[in-house]
Nucleic acid binder design. Structure first.
Lengths: 336, 336
DNA sequence: TTTATTAGCGGAAACGATTTAGACAGTGCT
DNA sequence: AGCACTGTCTAAATCGTTTCCGCTAATAAA
């Protein structure tokens, strides 16, 4: 690979001058600057990122921390889309992405140690267990961090407007005439809490009764469990007319349960999802759901993280809330 | 961060000795080696990956190159699962993953230049346009490469057994009594060619007629187009009893087309997919498909790539074929 | 005893970049 | 002329490692 030195000998200047010319410092004349930049281009020069990082302590690498278990993480559409937009935004600012997990090869290391080893400039934490030791270490470390859908003291985060999303869904279901609404919530997390809160509040605001046994705890991204719980909800004679699923993916389990009981989604039983994944508009009947703006969540997270890295003095910690939008499908029946 | 020097002063030895002790060289006594390792552990030492890379020219980073357009790449279940297992295998060997694309920040660079800039030790190429200039540059460069589902001269690749997969599906459809089979193929690529070849061959072997207009070119991962083409296939009076979809995801479009025409999947019209994504078993009726072993494909690719990197002399280029398995769903009717 | 060998360790250069401090020449001012 | 100042450039240190080579002392061989 061609180095600064190669350029310097060819042009008869010092390495320092080449470096400054290429980095746009002012103490090098316009003439030589142009000459050097031209030479660099001709010779196909690219800075050695490792050497630069060694000296400047800036790698232009961002760590991505997420739950890395089988069936999780990358294969979650929510996370995949989030990562995609985060990556796009980061790249346009010159940053690459590194997955941060524990246990690199033979060496046992924690996530935080992995960050230090790779010297990432910042970390984004998403779709993980925010109560874990690994997260704790990173949050309390000295690396800029942005969390998704969970907020820590003195750290920045990007939140989907979970409370409002559910409220809009309740509002919609109510407007369609539903009063007997059941709620399957996701596994314990800040997100699940927010959504439940939104649900309970808007139900109360509408004067709707929250039945005993109609608020159940399922899992996110678990159609099988949702299948079972949906069946359970429908077994009794007095059953809900509308069921809120933990998320769109799980809702498929709900669909199947309803069909298997000989009922029709969107006619006998109404269903509401959450997320706005691609399948929501492909299933039949189309799922009514609240589409999170994952594209913007990822973008905002990247922007904030890069701001924290590049302007640490003038950037403050904040909680950024990103709104979504109600998607009216065909899964909620009009009743009276 | 604690460096070799810190350890050396604390233990009263030279930096060189510490380095050699930690890297298991032989010219350092067992006693001091143990002492130094212990000290390193106590002080929380981790090597600075940049410094090491600078000196050794090994970053322990693998580049991942894939089609990075909207709606592609990360959000493809096939790719996501592939990446996941590739990543797991790579990490267990001490490698991290870097996404390689063009245009880092303001600097225009090609994918290959990006590789050079980040000094990745090897590259895996998947789910992309293999005829592009970007791929060409990388293939003809001096970085170890493994390609997925496409083979280049003198390069290693991991292939899914596409030909055989289709053949098994034809075999199955035939065994269920189907003779009038239509085939929607994916967009132009080595994979599409292989599958088509498998289809034509096994149809011929069974003495089945390949009707004019029953082999159409659709897209991978495009339910909308598949929807249209499926309708087109079913519009005529003399219609196929079984349709092969480009992939499972697109098959959803096919399902919808069939339903929208007032027909029933798995009764009036049979449907076959390809991939074995999670949704295949969630849709109703369950999709009959050929499940690619993405988990193994990713693992094999990582293994091969790392072998090429670490034992360049004794590793030869090869084409690794990974088998899949037929998944009998409910979407193929028994007819006579 | 002398010499050759070896084990164990350290010095120093190198990787490729950035950055500080200073050299040098030219300019303008008194 | 003497002085300060400015613009342009260079030398050298530095980041944290690895590695080649050489040194010392101890051991083995003669």
């Amino acid at each position: 690979m061609v180095s600064l030195k190669d350029i310097s000998v060819r042009c008869g200047v010092s390495v320092a001058t080449v470096s400054k010319a290429l980095n746009g410092h002012k103490d090098v004349s316009e003439a030589t600057k142009e000459r050097l930049i031209k030479a660099a281009k001709e010779m196909g020069y690219f800075p050695n990122s490792q050497a630069r990082a060694l000296k400047t302590n800036r790698t232009y690498n961002l760590g991505v921390m997420f739950l890395d278990e089988a069936g999780s993480g990358l294969t979650h559409e929510f996370f995949a889309r989030l990562l995609n937009s985060f990556k796009t935004e980061a790249e346009s600012a010159g940053y690459d992405i590194t997955f941060i997990n524990r246990d690199m090869g033979s060496r046992k290391m924690t996530t935080y140690e992995h960050c230090k080893y790779r010297n990432v400039d910042g970390v984004i934490i998403a779709c993980t267990d925010f109560t874990s030791q690994d997260v704790y270490e990173v949050i309390n470390g000295d690396i800029p961090v942005v969390t998704i859908d969970h907020t820590f003291e003195c750290r920045s985060s990007v939140l989907s407007n979970n409370e409002q999303g559910i409220e809009e869904l309740v509002e919609y279901a109510y407007s369609m005439g539903h009063k007997k609404i059941a709620y399957l919530q996701g596994n314990k997390s800040a997100v699940a809490e927010k959504r439940l809160k939104g649900f309970l509040r808007s139900m109360a605001a509408k004067g709707l009764e929250i039945r005993q046994g109609w608020v159940l705890t399922a899992d996110y991204h678990n159609p099988e469990l949702t299948y079972k719980l949906t069946k359970k909800l429908l077994e009794n004679d007095d059953r809900p007319t509308c069921i809120f699923m933990p998320d769109d993916y799980s809702a498929i389990g709900g669909y199947n349960a309803i069909k298997d009981m000989g009922l029709k989604v969107g006619e006998d039983v109404s269903v509401v999802g959450y997320d706005g994944i691609a399948y929501a508009t492909l299933v039949s009947p189309k799922l009514t759901t609240y589409a999170q703006d994952t594209e913007r969540i990822g973008r905002e997270a990247a922007k904030k993280l890069i701001a924290l890295i590049e302007q640490p003095q003038t950037t403050f910690h904040e909680v950024i809330t990103v709104g979504g939008s109600l998607v009216k499908g065909e899964s909620v029946a009009k009743i009276n």
